[in-house]
Amino acid sequence: MRQGNRQGRSRFVLLGILAPAVIWLVLFLILPYFNLFSFSFWQNDVFTVRHEFNLLNYAKFFTESQTGAAPYLVLLDTLKLACWVTVCTLLLSFPLAYFIRFKVTRYKQALYMLVIIPLWVSYIMRAYSWKIILGTNGILNSFLLWLGIVDTPVSFFLYSDVSVIIGMTHIYTPFVLMPVYTALEQIPQNLIEASNDLGGNRLRTFLHVVFPLALPGIITGGTYAFVLSMGDFLAPSLLGGPTSSTKIANIVQQQFGTSNNWPYGAAIGIVILVLVLGLLEVTGRLERHFSKLESTSPRTLR
């Protein structure tokens, strides 16, 4: 009896502690998702939304319009772009993180901060700076002309898929650098010495020790880059060309804006959500599979 009572009380206390978090979750996560989910099965009317269950929004997304184009193709386009950005951010941040971790002895923290600082610079400003660099009469073209490598300005640097990838790579590299650097930082120096000691040269040590141990960080970083670039509508609209400025997030934004078709926008949103959740599940599993560093402390004695 008494114990049951006490248990009841502690449960009450626990509830009190958890309540704010639960309320926050319900209010700002579960309810909005539920809302989005229900909207996706309704139909748009000019001034209101018709609340009758149907799958027309999903059908519309996956079938061709009267003019013969299927909206889901934009999603495939976006996935391709996200792949490019993921590869580029990784190719940029891994050597950078490796350099800071293993080659820099002084000012390590300062250099790391220098790479992270762009996170505090406004997004729009970073996108604009690329316009100045990549434009027809921009810094890069002027430089190439001066070097004599080209004799007319190269136009595909800006307002093309290339500039969108460059812009996003710049914007998302810090997000990738952080987990990759953390993973490298967590590799104990003595593992590298052990590999050296056992006859591993720099390359083999990298391939057999450093890289496998950095994989969880690489996967995390890659996932960040992929998901973030998939959901980005600003970089395409600022840096994209005539046919590369409309990615899936722009289409969603359009539905909640210019096109004013919330149910259709919600349906696309749900499709993206399912895709991202699937992706996170897969990368999460991979990450767990590769993360072996925890609990190998020598003091794990029974």
Partner: peptide, 14 residues
Amino acid sequence: EVNTVFQSYALFPH
């Protein structure tokens, strides 16, 4: 041609 046994073993966790 020397090998070291490290203080904290430095076994490769993977």
